[in-house]
Design a protein around this nucleic acid. Structure first.
Lengths: 288, 288
DNA sequence: GTTCCGCATGAATCGATAG
DNA sequence: ACTATCGATTCATGCGGAA
């Protein structure tokens, strides 16, 4: 009641399991405070190209982001987590510092910088240059509001030992690859059954391949990336927010894991893409 | 001659292949400018248990470092590289920001932040904590003085990945016979594309195991870590500086790769350890 | 029904060329 | 001079079609 009065007539229900078109700054203003359990997103990267539709200029990137992360902070539950997948661009042989500045600014905004996970992209973009190698990793910055927060480490345990090895070796090549690269098949979920047998906790380095599908828009990150954090930081039925949902990858992960999602994007074509990704899932439910 | 006058009577010779005891701030003042090809080091971290550790203050870590990196900048050749292996400490569940601040400050000092390599520690320290997983990576920040610098990418090429490996190995069963017996076969032509193609350039993610030697002081990083950067950024006979040499790992790597080293540490017991590590190498030369 | 190859495709980066 | 666009380089992955 008190909560309700503080948020006026705000209610979470109209936002649940929707892909909404607009600037998350505006849309999130309609959400009640402390209403989502996890925010996981990959925001548009700072870009020099002014012609780029979603390109956010490097100058002012931090301020642009802070305005929105203030809303993230309001709508996130106090035991929730905020996962930010970013990587700074290299311009004229020098790495941009706006991500470093953003981390410092988010801390000033009241966020606790709890961890920095490394997403190791096994299949990084090819190329050769005189002064650097291929870029094969991205930051997954973990921020929280409190020192203690919801975390379910057992849900992301990985198989080890002879028992798992034998079982893995008996699987076909395709199944094994699928098990490693995707959380959507039953094999990955059964890993939780191995708790107490031969399962180990992972580290803060995630080894995942990017998905190279021949679609019009390819997902910038694989389903298994948000899925990993969703399993780690939420329970069944929890609400996951992605304020820059792009191709809808986070929504797909939520659907597969029985979490509720709120997806936002300012680009109408991305919104359409995300909506069709969700619709396709409902038509062809994944074997779980 | 001009160079000599500018540096007064400074000469590099007395420093070559020595482990020197003292604060690198003082010792490096005696080196000529532009005299070393590579600086690779893992500096001491400020420890919150004491007011200072090895002379490193907690407050003012950045200022403490900048004073020394000014000397690094002076003694480093203009086509040289500076590799800084660091990882911020986590205090009360929150990650320190002094490394981020250091990167920004080094940029202000005139360094170019060229790259951030990730050292993925394959066998990270075991343990379990309620709100984080095992820490399995460290930053290897790459700074340079100029846009172009010495880099020998071929020296660190790695075997090709699973894709080529798997497909090539599968050839050996039936198809390789066919390829050998019939040169006009179209398939044999395709195989030829892969002949000699067993090595690829690495990425900016290094997969190295930590060394678990039964020493008194465990080396903070394995020989293979400085060795990788030494091979990448220097040639035979070049001079490598480690201003915080600790257990002497960088000197060992230099000895194995026929580079010259200058090692400095303020802690006398570390100096003794590093000196004995080098002495042991000379008694028992490594198979190369 | 499997297994296996061919091919397109990436949150890339640099240097050259064009406006 | 300064910016915008384009081609070259390169390799792990998934998918479609073939054997």
């Amino acid at each position: 009641m008190k909560e309700k009065r503080r948020n006026g007539s705000k209610a979470i229900a109209p936002f649940k399991n929707k892909i909404l078109q607009g600037d998350c700054l505006d849309i999130l203003a309609g959400l009640p405070r402390e209403s989502v359990n996890l925010i996981v997103t990959s925001p548009p990267y700072a870009d020099n190209r002014k012609s780029s539709y979603e390109g956010v200029p490097i100058d002012g990137y931090v301020d642009w982001f802070l305005e929105r992360s203030a809303q993230f902070q309001r709508v996130l539950r106090s035991d929730g987590s905020f996962i930010l997948n970013v990587k700074e661009r290299t311009v004229k042989g020098e790495k941009g510092t706006y991500i470093l500045e953003l981390v410092l600014a988010l801390k000033d905004q009241g966020w606790r910088w709890t961890e920095e996970y490394i997403w190791h992209k096994k299949n990084s973009y090819p190329g050769k240059w005189p002064n650097r190698f291929r870029d094969a990793w991205e930051r997954c910055l973990h921020f929280t509001k409190q020192k203690s927060f919801k975390m379910f480490q057992e849900s992301v345990m990985v198989p080890t030992g002879d028992w798992a090895k034998g079982r893995l070796s008996r699987l076909s090549q395709v199944d094994r690859l699928r098990a490693e690269s995707s959380a959507q098949n039953g094999f990955a979920k059964n890993v939780s059954n191995w708790v107490g047998r031969d399962a180990a906790y992972p580290t803060n380095v995630l080894h995942l391949a990017t998905e190279c599908k021949n679609r019009q828009h390819s997902a910038p990150f694989p389903v298994s990336l948000p899925a990993w954090f969703i399993k780690l930081f939420t329970e069944d039925g929890d609400i996951v927010l992605d304020p820059f949902i792009g191709a809808g990858t986070t929504a797909v992960a939520c659907h597969q894991l029985d979490r509720q999602f709120i997806g936002i994007d300012s680009n109408p074509s991305y919104v359409a893409l995300a909506r069709s990704a969700v619709a396709n899932l409902k038509r062809h439910p994944v074997q779980r």
